[in-house]
Design a protein around this nucleic acid. Structure first.
Lengths: 223, 223
DNA sequence: CGACAATATGGCACTCAGTACCCTCTGTAA
DNA sequence: TTACAGAGGGTACTGAGTGCCATATTGTCG
């Protein structure tokens, strides 16, 4: 029933546009009562994103289950759950993308959903980094970076109409974040230095010690 | 008139809460017609953030005026414009912060405003970095990082009730971003290397050339 | 001074999202 | 059969936001 409503609503949104479709239109075509619509969807916008609640729960569960993996890697993997939700239904995702671009109300709604993902990631990182010092700051900045990178890759794929490999675009985008935040095997290079490699470390004077240590560990494979 | 409405509305929001205050309540107390309210504010939420449009325009103008400054520094400075708007009215900003935290509708609205700042910054960075390669990706990730760092510093100050120096918190937060993204005079270090300084740069093997160059330029002062 | 245009404001009626409350139907257990 | 529970339907209401038109108010020209 919930799915019937979501499907009917989406179809009408594509036909007449989001704002020119009333809830009465939806329930009329679906053959149910108006009250039932709001039982399944708290708002008209929710019918456009019927699967984000589940995905958010999946992400929370995923982060609760990852053990002592590198934190940045963990949140990158968590972000990939969202990508998979999109890539599971390419046609739907592309149509929804186009719809969302055009409707301010849907853009705003999507923002609030994205924000919840970001806060989920930030909460995990805060736990890992600790509240002391700049832990919370790092957590929030990294979470924002991961979300921005993920969305960049995702949108690249969506704009292409769902052609090609979405994982590749997102992996590449997340690679930049992992690289910058120190958990990074840079593309084209082996993740650890082999014996005899000449490793030149470059850092700004006064770079914080945790970053220096993190970089070194990443290169010599002690991370 | 616009300011009278904003002031009256905010006062009522503090007294009765946002949702329990109707537009009719506002215009009744302000002594104007209901229609006039929506002439000045497209929505009830807008009355809570009456100065963001101007600030957004200021940011756009600022970015259009900065010359060939280091891009990350430029967007950090642009973000500080927002901070200054908040710190210009500490009492109001703190009250609004508390109000916004409690009202989902206001949180969502604020998100959409923050997003516009982020897109303004990203647009500037895109121009600077160029569309080719990962320019757009870097622009979006850096913009998201700057916004996240700024908001972290800002919220730290707002949570403290407006005590202390907001600039310090935001400078510190933005310092992390500038540091990570390569335009960084790390705290406590001189921004450029002096003659005879021993500068050891540390980078992962295979790090992209633009980052290495950027780091070097930042340290030896050619950027 | 008066006519007049332009802009600002108020009033009214309407659409529509979202909510509260209550009703009906259907299936199940005793 | 009654008793009950839970899903769905109907009705009426609040309140945001819009369109349209009437009414000041202001400024300018003759």
């Amino acid at each position: 029933m919930r799915e019937v409503l979501a499907r009917t609503a989406f179809q009408l949104f594509l036909e007449r546009g989001f704002e020119r479709t009333t809830v009465d239109d939806i329930v009329a075509r679906a053959g149910v009562g108006r009250r039932s619509f709001f039982r399944y969807f708290p708002s008209k916008e929710d019918a456009v994103f019927p699967d984000h609640e589940r995905c958010l729960a999946d992400m929370t569960a995923f982060l609760a289950a990852v053990g002592d993996a590198e934190p940045v890697d963990a949140v990158c993997d968590a972000a990939r759950l969202v990508l998979r939700m999109y890539s599971a239904n390419p046609e739907f995702s592309v149509q929804r993308y186009r719809l969302t671009r055009e409707v301010p109300g849907l853009r705003t709604y999507e923002l609030s959903v994205v924000r919840r993902y970001e806060q989920t990631l930030a909460g995990y990182l805060r736990d890992r980094y600790g509240e002391s010092g700049d832990g919370a700051l790092r957590a929030e900045v990294i979470a924002a970076s991961v979300v921005a990178a993920h969305n960049n890759g995702l949108r690249t794929w969506l704009r292409s109409g769902g052609e090609g490999d979405p994982e590749a675009a997102v992996d590449h985008a997340l690679g930049l974040v992992r690289q910058v935040w120190g958990s990074a095997p840079a593309e084209g290079a082996s993740p650890v230095a082999a014996d005899g490699d000449v490793v030149v470390m470059v850092a700004a004077k006064g770079a914080p010690m945790w970053r220096v240590v993190q970089q070194i560990e990443a290169v010599i494979g002690q991370g």
